[in-house]
């Protein structure tokens, strides 16, 4: 099994990455990655730190354009269109929601945190914003906890709540693709389970790339999992195969069974 998907129509692909390399100031962080992501799947990326997982995400939403020293080669097609040719990167980023490892509530109210993206996209009608805020908070399983204090500061929420607020914010723009980068690093286990539940439901509507350092999390959630190591993608496979000794590379099996990393 490899990065390309067999027997599926091109239009079911949301992301088609071929030969992607990422370097920072000439130092390669990721080498020749070829893989694709299918609509409505949860695509897991596992690997030890420094394996290039985050660089992969940054390349997808073209953060290289604003990260000094970062350069990419290769080809990334998002919704069938080469992202290198994308002229308005802001519009690309509005299609791709990102959740960072550490919860980042903007120093705004809870409401304004979630309304931020719709507002910058030009939605200003109160009713419409109210609806988006409620829907996004509900999807992130946060609505019931904060509905009575929407005007209080988002950065005052607990870590787990802030992470769900971040997810709500990422969902507020109705993205096609949601990328989560080790979202559970600063979140307690109970909240992690709740967020995982949220992701399973979201899968019906959007596509999710889940970068995680917890291999069991990938096992629980991902339809397919890829293993990154030292800036290379070792393999992509169905999660059931990867985690049941049917990985094609022995390093993958060693990693998921905890023999290194």
């Amino acid at each position: 099994m490899n990065g390309t998907l067999q027997g599926s129509a091109q239009d079911s692909l949301i992301l088609d990455v071929s030969d992607l390399s990422v370097a920072y100031g000439g130092k390669t962080a990721l080498r020749n990655v070829t893989l694709n992501v299918v609509k409505n799947e949860i695509f897991g990326i596992i690997g030890p730190s420094g394996s290039g997982k985050t660089s992969f995400l940054k390349a997808i939403n073209r953060m290289d354009a604003m990260t000094p020293g970062m350069s990419t080669t290769g080809n990334i097609r998002f919704q069938g269109y080469d992202t290198a040719k994308w002229r308005n990167l802001y519009s690309l980023r509005r299609r791709i929601g990102v959740v960072f490892p550490l919860p980042t509530g903007l120093p705004l109210s809870i409401y304004e945190n979630v309304a931020f993206t719709p507002k910058i996209a030009g939605i200003h009608r109160k009713l419409e914003l109210d609806a988006i805020v409620e829907k996004s908070l509900r999807r992130a399983a946060l609505w019931d906890e904060v509905k009575d204090r929407l005007s209080s500061l988002g950065s005052l929420l607990s870590g787990g709540q802030q992470q769900r607020l971040t997810i709500a914010r990422a969902l507020s723009q109705d993205p096609d693709l949601l990328m989560l980068d080790e979202f559970s690093i600063a979140v307690d286990p109970v909240t992690t389970m709740r967020i995982e539940e949220v992701l399973r439901e979201l899968k019906n509507e959007i596509t999710i790339i889940l970068v995680t350092n917890l291999v069991q999390q990938a096992e629980r959630l991902a339809d397919r999992t890829s293993f990154f190591l030292n800036g290379e993608m070792v393999e992509v496979g169905r999660t059931v195969d990867i985690f049941n000794g049917k990985a094609s590379d022995s390093r993958t099996t060693d990693y998921v069974e905890g023999r290194f990393g």
Partner: peptide
């Protein structure tokens, strides 16, 4: 900087990041 990065990742333009965050 995490505020700037978060806002940029959501598709805010440079000026929107400055003005709103």
């Amino acid at each position: 900087d995490k505020y700037r990065e978060a806002a940029e990742a959501m598709g805010a333009t440079k000026w929107q990041v400055i003005r709103k965050v």
